[in-house]
Amino acid sequence: MEGLFIQKSTDPQAEIIQNDSSLKLLAHHDEMEIMLQTVRPDSVVWIAPGEDPSLMEFYYILQGEASIALPEGNVTLCEGESFYVLGLKEPLRIYAENGIKLLYIASKPLFDYLYGYLGDLNELLIQTGKKDKFTYDHGKRVMKYCLKICEKIKLPSERLENIVLASLFHDVGKFFVPDEVLNKPSKLNDEEFRLVKKHTTDSAQLLKLKFGQVVASIAKQHHERLDGTGYPDGITADEITLEGRIIAVADSLDAMTADRPYIKGKPFEEAIKELQSQKGSKYDPLIVDAVAELYEEGQLP
């Protein structure tokens, strides 16, 4: 019938797949796009302010619950409820404890932009995950810890997008580390450790091309330490950005507590004590104290 357009489940659809969500383009006409967004359980997604103030983005919850973080407190929306953004000034954080499905309608074309913005790095992260499952899940957990820390220390919202991107993709450079080194259960020799350390600069180079120098610098610093014993540059204290110091703590916390094929992770209480023992020498006291408070309040793990 003229004017009727039918799509079957077997028809090919453009899709962006991330480690915590996916976005399918269902239909588009003129400038409007209709998409389906699926967010996996225990994940966080962001709605960033658009460059076009006339852009409206409408979200209808098809399944699950969405918790929207607002300065005055979280708002939870359930199946059948909706929200939209227009003239958004600050990034909006949405948490999906049990996963959600959203009908997403944009008044301006966004899909191709998002595909280009995230697609290449997501694919590289997925390929890295095939080499090393720990790395694939690690970025997502580190991002979640960073967000909780940022809330606790009240990091200005305009700085959140950079730390979200840097923390999620901070280890993407591990794609270039040989498999036998990346998955070696025993202690690395000097040459192997040199290859692993290079992932910080490789990640930064990839992120600089995609997101700019600020995000790249933050990601590059996640193994730096206050006393200068970190890598790749051995910078100290205030030379390390606040965002870099946040990711350093979050990264170390997950490295200690997450299970790997060859070793079981430490209990959170033990990991936090280890962070506290190096507070002020290797890790920022403000960040370590925030992690300890989050654990005591039951917000970690």
Rank of each mutant, 00 (worst) to 15 (best):
2 E>W: 05
9 S>P: 04
13 Q>L: 15
18 Q>I: 14
45 V>H: 05
45 V>R: 05
48 A>I: 09
50 G>P: 06
50 G>L: 10
51 E>P: 02
53 P>W: 13
57 E>T: 12
59 Y>V: 00
63 Q>F: 04
66 A>G: 10
67 S>D: 01
67 S>G: 03
69 A>N: 08
71 P>M: 04
74 N>T: 11
74 N>Q: 07
80 G>P: 03
82 S>L: 00
83 F>Y: 06
86 L>G: 10
105 I>S: 07
116 G>A: 07
118 L>Q: 10
124 L>K: 13
128 T>S: 08
141 R>L: 07
145 Y>L: 01
146 C>R: 05
146 C>F: 07
146 C>L: 09
148 K>G: 09
154 K>E: 15
158 E>Q: 05
160 L>V: 14
165 L>N: 15
170 H>Q: 12
174 K>T: 05
177 V>M: 00
177 V>L: 02
184 K>T: 11
189 N>T: 03
189 N>H: 04
197 K>V: 14
197 K>L: 14
201 T>H: 11
208 K>Q: 10
220 K>Q: 15
221 Q>N: 10
223 H>M: 03
225 R>P: 02
230 G>R: 05
232 P>S: 14
237 A>T: 10
238 D>K: 07
239 E>V: 00
240 I>R: 03
241 T>D: 09
244 G>N: 08
244 G>I: 02
250 A>K: 06
251 D>F: 12
254 D>P: 07
255 A>F: 14
255 A>T: 13
256 M>S: 08
262 Y>N: 06
264 K>Y: 06
270 E>F: 12
276 Q>H: 09
282 K>R: 12
284 D>A: 11
290 A>C: 05
293 E>S: 10
